[in-house]
Amino acid sequence: MSDNATQTRDRSVVYRTGLGVVMFIIYGCIYVGFVCINIFAPNLMEVKVLFGMNLAVVYGFMLIVAALVFALIYNWKCMATKDTCDETGGE
């Protein structure tokens, strides 16, 4: 691999790592919010918020759906940086 390619790859790795950390922190905050409501205000979870479903169910499902949405955004951003993963073969 040429020096240029190595540098591009290093930059791509740094970008992906940084993006991963930021997205992890954002998701982590949503998760911590969920845990905190369960601990400090469990009664709040009874409140109906969507289609007759309570906050506990909606927040729980939202955490699952958000994980997939975050994952797709992460992948899209990684692909958009034209990372050099293709060079290492076999996607």
């Binding site: 699952i64 994952a71 797709l72 990684c78 993963c85 076999g90």
Partner: peptide, 20 residues
Amino acid sequence: TVPSEAAARKSTIVAIGAIG
């Protein structure tokens, strides 16, 4: 078991969708 880092990432995303 996959050939690249991108493949590792993509397989994790498939896993999140299926498991979720």
